[in-house]
Design a protein around this nucleic acid. Structure first.
Ligand code: FES
Ligand code: FES
Lengths: 156, 156
DNA sequence: CAGAAACTGTACTGTTTTAGTCCTGTTTGT
DNA sequence: ACAAACAGGACTAAAACAGTACAGTTTCTG
């Protein structure tokens, strides 16, 4: 089924919510407005901050915001942030975790073509394409609107 | 990690083995030559026959062979045969299994862009590209060699 | 016609992964 | 000092998977 993690699924919901605002949002705030339970939202946001997609501020009035212009974030990045490198099987040239017969193993490296193809296609889907309004808006307008919101958030 | 089923992984090994021969091969035969345990090979072949990628013959001298020219088989087909439709989340326009708030659910349909992108990229990787020799051979030569073997198998 | 070689379908079980939760600690603004 | 937020990690119940087994059906061969 080539399923994505449920956490990744929620992450997109939460990120879309974050795309709609123009300031730092707390985990509790995002949980309320997205409907995803707080502990889960918290887990997601922590991970996204760790991998550099979001930035966080502690203390009173703290919260999360995008660490860089959201229009430049691809789905490949989001998925990799929550699930680690995209690799459809354990036996991939980069990951060391192959079987014990690496030298003569008949499937060594076979899946690379598939990994590369998937990776490439995910690079080309942007996070902001996941917004429902993306379907009705001109892509350039969408990019501009999102960029404005992000600028406002950075200023605040 | 966007992992593929282990069964699917083995399936490629077994299918590659089948690509190398020019006649019907029994499950036991393929198990021996691929190193994958017989019950597992059997499970895979049954499923591939059910979905129309392979054809089977019962009885003495029976076995499995490709149901159609192998050069035309894509990885998307192989993956779908063993794991069902490619859908990274439960909430996809075709599959009915969404949450109970379909009407106002904020993530309804979001992942379609990703599904389509992945599906398309998998359509473009052929099964025969997974053969190790595919890396050193001219694609046209490869296609021809495989077609000849298939013709021989059909005749036998 | 008997028996062996193959495929077919399904059911079972131990293991692994995932999802979701909770707790304890650290930072920061008032 | 205190409360609001984030950080990191540990824990558990539930779901999915992998692998196996078995009883049934078809077909060839002698
Ligand atoms: S599975 Fe990776 S080398 Fe065998
Ligand atoms: S998850 Fe599919 S409609 Fe809500």
């Amino acid at each position: 089924m080539l399923k994505v993690n449920k956490l990744t699924d929620y992450a997109v919901v939460v990120l879309c919510d974050l795309l709609r605002g123009d300031r730092l949002r707390s985990a509790a705030d995002l949980a309320t407005s997205s409907g995803v339970p707080l502990p889960t939202v918290s887990k997601i946001l922590k991970q996204l901050a760790r991998t550099g997609i979001l930035q966080s501020a502690r203390g009173v009035n703290g919260g999360y915001g995008f660490a860089r212009p959201p229009a430049g974030i691809s789905m490949a990045e989001v998925i990799e942030a929550l699930e680690g490198p995209i690799a459809v099987t354990g036996c991939v040239e980069e990951s060391g975790e192959c079987c014990e017969f690496v030298h003569q193993c008949p499937m060594s490296g076979h899946w690379n073509a598939v990994n590369v193809a998937i990776r490439k296609s995910l690079d080309e889907v942007r996070l902001i394409d996941m917004l429902p309004e993306a379907r009705f808006m001109d892509p350039e307008d969408l990019t501009r609107v999102i960029a404005e919101r992000h600028a406002a958030a950075m200023q605040a």
